[in-house]
């Protein structure tokens, strides 16, 4: 995990080293936070105007808009932190519609007492992720709440992007015969979070896969505009996303257990805790439903991209068992992959 000393940007000098209620009051401390902490990270001509609203120029095409709130605990984890998740999560939701991400709003809810150094570290990683994704932060807000009223820091991001003509991605478009492709190993993010929680008595080397997928999607759409659907399997994991695919389109989905990529250390951690990787969150993976004649081409394009190098065809949309996801087990039997009931709970034994 990078430490604060890995970053070249030194922590700006502020009057306090922790967040105070006054930092959210709109007064001098608020202004200091904006000037010294936020603006240096996100500066661009639209944001720099510091009006009550951002005024935006939009290129031609349909607009895509999405919003997401981030409340992850711990806020720093192997492979990422709440800051890059907040950028990547919203960028990915835009990208799954085939949109080019353009603008982002960022709203912080900060708990009184949060170390300024932690906030700075989160902002640095947001700056880096936004630059990688090519998205501009154009408006923002900060509120400070009493100690105990939130868990250190909550972040909401809303994103706007534009969809070129000729692209119409939707889970409803999936047809029997479509190939189901996953862009890489599953369950990395969820297991990274779970295994680094402080009350767990073993340590792992699992890193979160947090990443912005818009450049991968761009490569995929360049080789085929006929891709039917894209989705990032975040909370609820691959199983939930595929159940959504099946429900929206009315097809059945048949998976091949052997084809689903899971890192050995992730599989090990899942075994120890009695958790099924199919239901564990990802933050830098996508699932695609692609017409069969386009599948190889799309797969090859994905594998040429660093975020898709381990892409695999993991199953097929079928006309049998409509709206139901099934999996062919390694032994050759077939069973259903149901929607999860709630969060997976580690088993007693």
């Amino acid at each position: 995990m990078p430490s604060i000393t890995d970053f070249t940007c030194p922590l700006p000098r502020l009057d306090y080293d922790t967040i105070q209620l006054a930092h959210g009051s709109g007064g001098r401390l608020s202004a200091e936070l904006i000037d010294k902490l936020f603006l240096p990270r996100f500066a661009n001509p639209i944001l720099n105007r510091l009006e009550d609203q951002a005024t935006l120029q939009m290129p031609p095409g349909r607009l895509a808009m999405t919003t997401d709130s981030f409340v992850v605990s711990p806020i720093f984890f192997p492979g990422g932190d709440i800051g890059d998740l907040a950028i990547n999560g919203t960028v990915n939701d835009l990208a799954m519609g085939g949109a080019t991400p353009l603008y982002l709003s960022v709203a912080f809810i900060l708990e009184e007492g949060l170390p300024i150094a932690d906030l700075h570290r989160i902002l640095l990683s947001m700056e880096k992720s936004a630059a990688t994704a090519g998205i501009q932060v154009v408006t923002g807000d900060t509120k400070v709440v009493n100690k105990g009223a939130c868990d250190q820091i909550f972040i909401n991001t809303t994103g706007i992007g534009v969809i070129e003509s000729g692209i119409a991605l939707s889970a409803a478009n999936i047809r029997p015969g479509d190939k189901i492709i996953v862009s890489g190993t599953i369950a990395d993010h969820g297991m990274a979070i779970l295994t680094c929680r402080e009350n767990l008595s073993f340590h792992s080397r699992i890193n979160s896969d947090s990443a912005a997928l818009n450049s991968l999607v761009k490569e995929m759409l360049e080789v085929s505009k006929e891709i039917h659907a894209l989705r990032d399997p975040t909370r609820g994991g691959l199983a939930t996303t595929l159940n959504e695919f099946a429900a929206s389109s009315g097809v059945g989905i048949l998976l091949e257990e052997k084809a689903i990529p899971v890192r050995a250390e992730v599989r090990g951690a899942c075994e120890v805790m009695g958790i099924d990787p199919l239901y564990v969150a990802n933050e830098g993976k996508l699932v695609a439903a692609v017409p069969p004649d386009q599948a190889e081409r799309v797969l090859n394009a994905m594998r040429c991209h660093p975020l898709g190098s381990e892409a695999q065809i993991i199953g097929t949309a079928v006309a049998e068992h409509p709206r139901l996801v099934t999996i062919k087990t390694a032994l050759g039997a077939e069973r259903i992959v149901a929607m999860p009931v709630g969060e997976q709970l580690p088993r007693i034994c």
Binding site: T195, H203, S204, E265, R267, G268, V272, L331
Partner: peptide
Amino acid sequence: MNNIKYLDEYRDPVLAGK
């Protein structure tokens, strides 16, 4: 944590088939 060993051996479809 290191990788868990002795899983694949006991999930081997060929052996299971036999």
